[in-house]
Structures are given as C-alpha cells and as structure tokens.
Simulated scan of single mutants.
Amino acid sequence: MALDQFGPFAVMFEEGELDVPGYLRLLHLHTPESQIVIDRVERALSAGDPARWVAALFRDADWRPHLVGAIALLLDQGETLDRNLLWCAIDSGSWVTPQLIVAAVFVDPSFPEKARVRVDEQCPVLVPVSLTPAERHSATGPDGLLGRRAKMLASILAASASIRSLERWASDLQRDVRIEHLLKEDEWNGSDKIVASWMTNVRRAFLERGHILAPKAT
C-alpha cells in the first residue's frame, strides 16, 4: 500500500497526535479520538481534487483505505463523489464490508436495488488475484471466499432492517434454507453485530458534528 497514491488522505495512516494510526480509530468509532480522524478526512476533502483521491482509496485492495473512503463519502454532503466506489470494495470482499454496507445505507439511494441483486445471486465476491497469499491476508483479512460471501450477506441483511422497504424482505430471507446455510459461515465474524454497532456509533459521531445521518432510501 503506497501512501503517496492517496494524496492528502495519506495522513490518515499516520499517528500524529494519536497513539495509533488514524484509520484504526474508524474501525469502531467509539472513542473521542475518532473525531480527530474524521477532522483529518474533512480537511483532506477540502485539499483539492477529492474525487481522484477517494477513488484511489477504494481502488486499493487493502481494507484500510476503504474505511477512510467510507468516512469521506459520509462527509460528502454535496454528493459529488461516486457512491459506486463503496460497492466495488464490497464486491471485492473487503474485510470492512460491514462498515462499508452501513455507509452505503446513508449515502446511496439505490441501496435496496443493489442489496437485492447481490443477495439474489448469493453475494458473489471477486477477490483481487494479483496478491500473494501473505499480501492477501494482510490486505483483505483471513476469510476465504465463502466467508467473504457470508460476511456480505449478513451485513446486507442486518443493514436492511433500517430501511422500511427492505425490512420484511430481510426478515423473510432469514427462513430461507440456502440463506440460513450461508449465514452460519459468518457466525464467528458476527457481521450483523458489527453493522449494528457501527451504525449506532457513526450516527453518534456525526451527530456530534451537527450532521444527522439517515438512510437515503425508504
């Protein structure tokens, strides 16, 4: 992961006044230091050419830039950045798929359609093939292909509970034998719990900044 490709966003991978690299504070968003990192993202967005740098964050195979990119999209009140970048990272089996799915709920009005398509197809994932096994483990996490599909499925169904038009659909799917089988593959990851926790924490973090996050779709 070459930091110079991220331009002004490279600071998110440094410690600075923090005791850990900034992006780590975005994983859970449950400490006051999270606001310091969100401030960094906001400043980077104002530094010029944000579309270029945010696209670079999501094009990287590593999950760490994806997390930073998700916050950038949530801060993009003018909606000038490409929302499809989130889905590209999700479809690549990103380790932070639960967080990316939550971000998609709040920034993408076409979330219901995109969620249904992926679940109907059993959540296919295309993991980058240009990485060595060691690089893949570091960049995308320890899950195998089945585990990544299960993570996407569990995340989508959990997040769908916050969208009125998807509530019944998601609830009914829980009783589908094929869906139930795939969801069991995610039990050790607990992606549904990550979705619930990150959704609560990101809403709280943005409310502290004067922004109310609400699903773009109804």
Rank of each mutant, 00 (worst) to 15 (best):
K114C: 04
H137N: 14
L131P: 09
D172F: 06
G69Y: 00
L145A: 13
L157P: 00
V202W: 07
H181C: 12
A10Y: 01
H137V: 05
W169G: 06
D62F: 10
E208W: 00
L73K: 10
Q35K: 06
I212K: 09
L45C: 06
A72D: 03
Q99W: 05
H66R: 01
R178Q: 15
F106A: 04
G141H: 01
V68F: 05
P112M: 07
R52P: 11
R40A: 02
W87E: 08
T218H: 12
D91Q: 13
L81S: 02
W188Q: 14
I36F: 10
E185N: 04
V119W: 05
E33Y: 08
W188C: 00
A196E: 07
D108Q: 01
G22M: 08
D186A: 01
V177K: 12
T97A: 03
F106W: 04
V117D: 13
R148M: 01
K114T: 11
L131D: 00
L18W: 01
A150R: 03
V125K: 09
P65G: 02
N84W: 12
D192K: 06
T140L: 14
E187R: 12
K151C: 13
G210Y: 07
V129P: 04
W87T: 02
S160G: 15
T218M: 11
V202C: 05
